[in-house]
Each structure stands twice: as structure tokens, then as C-alpha cells.
Amino acid sequence: MRIAFFVNSIEGETAYYTTTTLAIAAIARGHDVCYVTPGDFVLRPDDRLMIRATVLKGSKAKKADAFVAALQSGQTKVETIDVAEIDVLFLRNDPSEDADERPWAAQAGTIFGRLAAERGVLTVNDPDGLARAQNKLYFQDFPEAVRPTTLISKSIEEIRAFIDQQKQGAILKPLQGSGGKNVFKIASSKEANLNQIFEAVSGEGYLIAQGYLPDATAGDVRMFLMNGRPLQRDGAYAAFRRVPAKGDVRSNMSAAGTAAAVEVTPEMLAVAELVRPKLIEDGMFLVGLDIVGSKILEINVFTPGGLPDIAELHGVDLAPDVIAALEEKIKMKSNYAGKLSNRILATL
């Protein structure tokens, strides 16, 4: 196979990214890998969709640090190829990273991913599903049983009233965003700095206020689902606990959170089962659930990370399993010759 990984930028890739782990696993399994960024698509007058793909020179698998160093240090070449020559387009960008400085780039993956899928390229996660998930409002489409009590508003009066109803306080965060940016815990609507917090967060648009879950003090559990089911091999699950830094309510790894081993419980598996139908309906091949108790704080469908942490904590590298699943999808695609939509194939 030839797999194209769509990312925000080549310069922004790191050795600890899950995308890096997936790329290395693909190379180790004998596949060709290239990288594509938001500015690398070309739709020609003859309706051919081309990509300016960044390709590593040589096909030998490397360690993560060496792989990223080679990717960023000129040991690459740019090839302009027809997207039809790509077997899999793996959309792995974070739209929120581009929303402020490069708004044109935020939706490039879903826009051109849809065109690639129309031209027969297996595109995961399904771009139509991702288009519906551009902000956290997507989370409200999942069963109420897995969601914390939630208010979405730009009204400070509505938010104050909501906080007053939450005995354990509330979490306030922007509707659009990721990485734990501008996430605050509010204990009471009478807090002196609530107005300042509201102004800071509402400047990015609508806000989400969620009832605080006391169990979140120990962090949340990031669990990977693949094809709608927990990713696991021989009982070893792709899951780990994200522990917040001391004095911080955020467990995001980008906000100084740390990874710890976790045992997957029947309660967590029950939560995953409740969201499975919606994920399959939307063609979400690989996602990350952030679970606290019997609730989900967020569902990451764009760039779920943590596979390298899981490999280190549990001694099980599940990246090859993800690539193997893509191999099976390409076989099915060939067998059914255009009879399966991209959305259906994405989660079969």
C-alpha cells in the first residue's frame, strides 16, 4: 500500500506523535509512506486531484527520533502524484491548530479528503463524518448517558445560573479548541475572576460549561477505539490514564499531563459500547475516548494520541494492528469493486 498521512505541518511533527508511530509501523510492514499538508492539494482543469507528497528517501524503517529528523532535515523529496495512486489517505490534522492563523487550512483535510474518497481513495476517518465533528458540539449527538451535564452558551447569565446548579462546580472551555487551551474549573458563580475567565474564553466563540466530575482529579482514561470497538490485542487494551499536573484540572498531555498505566474496567467497555453505533454511522475508523467513571469528557476523532505511551507502559505496540486493519480494508475494497461507500468501508 501507499499511505499518505495528512498533518498540519511537517515542521510540527514530533517523535512522540501517534502519527509517527503509525508511519513507522506502516514502513515496517512493507508499505510506502508519504506526508501531505493543507497546502499540498492541486485540482487540475481535467478534474484530476494531485498531491504534492513529501516522501522520505529510502524505505527502511527508523526509530522515531531518526524518522522525524529525516522528515524535517531535507532527507526527503516532494513528488506530485495523482491521488488515485494513493491507497489510503489518513487524515491526522488538528483543525483547531490552524483556526486562528490559517483558517483556510482548518478544513482542508475534510474538503480535499472528500474529493479523494470520491476518486476511490480509502480516506480515514471519513471526511463527511469529520466535517460534522469540527467542534465539540458533535459530542452532543452521543447518548445522554455518557455525557456530563452540559450547557453551551455565550451568555454569562446562563453560565452563572448553570454553575449555581452544579454542587461540585463546573468546567468552562471553548466550543472550538483542543489541547486543554483555556480550560478552567469554576467552583462557584460568585468567583471574583469569573468575568475575566468568561471574557477570555468567549473571545473564541461559544463556551461549554460541564458539571465537574470529582473522579477527574485522578485524571481521565484515554481509550482508543478502532472500527467502533476498543483497540486491543490478546486482552491488552490501547488505553492509559492521563494524569494532570499538580494544581491543574487538565489532563491533556500537551498541558503537562503524564501517562500512567490503567486497567480497563467493564464500566469503561460499557461506555465504549454506547458510543459505538454513532462512530460507525459516521465512518470513524480510529478515535480516542477520554473517560472519567461512566462519562466521556471528549471524543477525539481527528488526532487521538497516546499509542507510544501505551507501548511504553504496557509493552504492547498496537500501531501495527491499525495498519493491518487498513490492509484488510484495501482487500475488501478490491473485492467489492466500488460497491462499498468510503463511510462504510472506514469502519468495516
Rank of each mutant, 00 (worst) to 15 (best):
D94I: 05
A325C: 05
D32R: 06
G169D: 02
A255R: 06
F142I: 04
P38C: 05
G203H: 10
G39S: 03
A245Q: 07
H314D: 13
S155F: 06
Q168L: 11
F41M: 00
K60P: 07
A131E: 10
S73Y: 02
D65H: 11
G39L: 01
L269M: 08
K333T: 09
S155D: 13
K278G: 15
I81G: 01
V7R: 00
M332S: 13
E97K: 06
D128N: 09
D141N: 13
S178C: 09
T19G: 03
G129Q: 01
A261C: 07
R222D: 14
A209H: 08
K190A: 15
G39K: 02
I171M: 12
R114Q: 14
F224C: 00
G120S: 00
K154F: 12
V124Q: 03
E328H: 12
A161K: 06
A272Y: 09
R2C: 12
V249Q: 10
A145D: 10
G30C: 03
G120F: 04
I156T: 10
R276Y: 10
D128E: 14
F90L: 07
N227C: 11
S188P: 09
Q165F: 09
A4C: 07
T303G: 12
S251G: 15
T123F: 06
A133L: 03
D47W: 09
V36N: 02
D215Y: 11
A108G: 07
K339G: 08
A131M: 08
F90A: 10
P304D: 03
N227G: 11
R48I: 09
T110S: 08
K60N: 14
G129H: 05
E263S: 11
S251A: 13
A337F: 14
L122I: 00
L231K: 01
K57Q: 13
A53M: 03
M268T: 08
G30K: 01
L225R: 00
S178A: 15
G293R: 03
G305C: 12
A216Y: 08
Y35N: 01
G74A: 00
D290P: 13
D164Q: 05
L326P: 01
A117Q: 00
L326Y: 07
D87L: 04
S189T: 05
N252A: 10
G12R: 03
V68M: 04
